[in-house]
Simulated assay, not measured.
Amino acid sequence: MTNFRIGFGYDMHRLTEGRELWMGGIKLDFEKGLQGHSDADVLIHTICDALLGAANLRDIGFHFPDTSEEFSGVDSKVLLERTVALLRKKGFEIGNVDATICAEVPKMNPHIPQMQQKLSEVMGVNIDSISIKATTSEKMGFVGRQEGITAYAVALIYKF
């Protein structure tokens, strides 16, 4: 009997001057970056939460608290690698991830194939198992005012 589980993740970070913009494990050329304790890669944080939620392992803040110096400025790919290790320790494998980035700027679509490649490498899954989409908020709310970026993800995990 196969055990399938689905998890959902959501995250948001403020755009700010003086920071690099990391999204999906790659650095984007943009004049602002996302504010956060780590590199603030909102897409990876969202995927971590979706995976952790599916495995009933709480959330990213529980495992990698923003009060810990160990995670200050950390590359979010490290958090994703550790998340995948937690899942596999519990006997789960990743079926697929479906994520959406919501940003007015910069345009995300040109970078999606590179993000998919990087995430597939970090997670040890086929690139076809990672779907990333991009949208805007039609100039509404804090994303529409170019104050921040949000991301959403669902993940399917399984064990036999």
Rank of each mutant, 00 (worst) to 15 (best):
Lys32Glu: 13
Thr100Val: 09
Asp11Ala: 14
Arg5Lys: 12
Val125Lys: 08
Asn109Tyr: 08
Gly61Asn: 15
Val42Gly: 03
Lys133Tyr: 05
His37Met: 05
Arg88Gly: 09
Ala153Trp: 05
Lys89Met: 13
Ala134Thr: 10
Ala134Asn: 12
Phe4Pro: 03
Thr150Glu: 14
Asn109Cys: 03
Asp128Gln: 15
Gly124Arg: 07
Val42Ser: 04
Asp49Ser: 00
Gln146Cys: 08
Arg58Pro: 00
Gly148Asn: 00
Ile127Met: 14
Thr46Ser: 09
Asp128His: 14
Ile149Ala: 05
Gly24His: 04
His37Lys: 08
Tyr10Val: 12
Glu121Met: 14
Leu52Pro: 00
Asp41Val: 06
Val97Ser: 03
Phe92Val: 08
Gly25Phe: 02
Ile6Phe: 07
Gln117Ile: 11
Asn96His: 15
Glu69Met: 10
Tyr158Pro: 05
Gly33His: 01
Met140Ile: 12
Leu34Phe: 01
Ile6Arg: 09
Ala99Trp: 05
Ala54Trp: 06
Arg82Asp: 08
Leu87Ala: 01
Lys107Trp: 09
Ile94Leu: 11
Met12Arg: 15
Ala153Thr: 08
Ala85Lys: 14
Val78Met: 08
Ile94Met: 08
Asn96Arg: 15
Arg145Pro: 01
Asn109Gln: 12
Asp29Phe: 05
Glu20Ala: 07
Val42Asn: 02
Tyr158His: 13
Gly73Ile: 03
Leu156Arg: 13
Leu15Val: 00
Ile112Cys: 00
Asn56Gly: 10
Tyr10Phe: 15
Arg19His: 11
Leu80Asp: 00
Lys107Arg: 14
Thr46Val: 04
Arg145Glu: 11
Arg145Trp: 07
Ile26Glu: 04
Asp128Lys: 15
Arg58Glu: 15
Ser76Cys: 05
Asn3Tyr: 09
Lys139Pro: 02
Arg19Asp: 05
Arg5Met: 10
Ile44Trp: 04
Glu69Phe: 08
Arg145Ser: 12
Gln35His: 10
Thr67Asp: 04
Leu87Tyr: 01
Gln146Trp: 04
Glu70Cys: 05
Tyr152Glu: 12
Gly73Phe: 02
Thr136Cys: 06
Trp22Gln: 03
Lys159Ser: 10
Asn126Thr: 08
Arg145Asn: 11
Lys90Val: 01
His111Glu: 00
Gln114Ile: 03
Glu20Lys: 06
Tyr152Arg: 11
Tyr10His: 13
Tyr158Gly: 09
Thr83Asn: 12
Ile60Met: 11
Thr150Lys: 13
Ile127Lys: 15
Ser72Trp: 15
Cys102Ser: 12
Val84Tyr: 06
Ile6Asp: 03
Gln116Leu: 01
Gly53Arg: 08
Asp66Ser: 12
Lys118Ile: 14
Leu21Ile: 02
Leu52Cys: 00
Met140Asn: 10
Val105Gly: 02
Arg145Met: 13
Thr2Val: 14
Phe142Pro: 15
Asp39Ile: 10
Asn96Val: 09
Glu17Ala: 13
Ala153Ser: 13
Arg5Gly: 06
Lys27Ser: 07
Leu79Pro: 06
Ser68Glu: 10
Gly18Ala: 09
Thr100Gly: 03
Gln114Asp: 15
Tyr152Lys: 10
Phe71Arg: 03
Leu79Asn: 05
Thr2Arg: 11
Val42His: 02
Leu57Pro: 02
Leu156Trp: 04
Thr67Met: 02
Ala153Asn: 06
Thr67Arg: 04
Ala54Cys: 03
Gly61Ser: 15
Gln114His: 13
Tyr158Asn: 10
Ala103Tyr: 05
Pro65Leu: 03
